[in-house]
């Protein structure tokens, strides 16, 4: 996987405990918006590098009959989502 760290727009649902779960995201590529539905969140981990809390979601989606694995990042401090690795 390659590190991209591209800001993305996300639709997510939050548990009562306040944990966000992404449903789908929109990413702009070559002047075109792509909407990708998240098939399954495989793992969710937390990192606190430099004291900055981030949630990392390893997700998978079936695209053209292939399972595509990628990682999303949610920065708690700024409420921003990133396409971290693909």
């Amino acid at each position: 996987m390659k590190v991209l760290m591209k800001p993305i727009e996300v639709i997510a649902w939050f548990t009562k405990e306040g944990i966000p779960n992404p449903i789908k995201y929109r990413v702009r590529e070559e002047e075109k918006d792509n909407i990708i539905k998240i098939g399954r969140v495989v793992t969710r981990t937390e990192e606190k590098l430099a004291g900055n809390r981030m949630l990392i979601y390893r997700c998978q989606t079936i695209l053209h009959d292939h399972i595509k694995v990628y990682e999303l990042k949610y920065e708690v401090n700024t409420c921003r989502w990133f396409l971290f690795k693909i």
């Binding site: 590190v3 590098l49 430099a50 900055n52």
Partner: peptide
């Protein structure tokens, strides 16, 4: 090192 870690976290290589 704080700046370096933050930059790595933000995706810089």
């Amino acid at each position: 090192s704080w700046e370096a870690v933050y930059r790595l976290q933000q995706g810089q290589t």
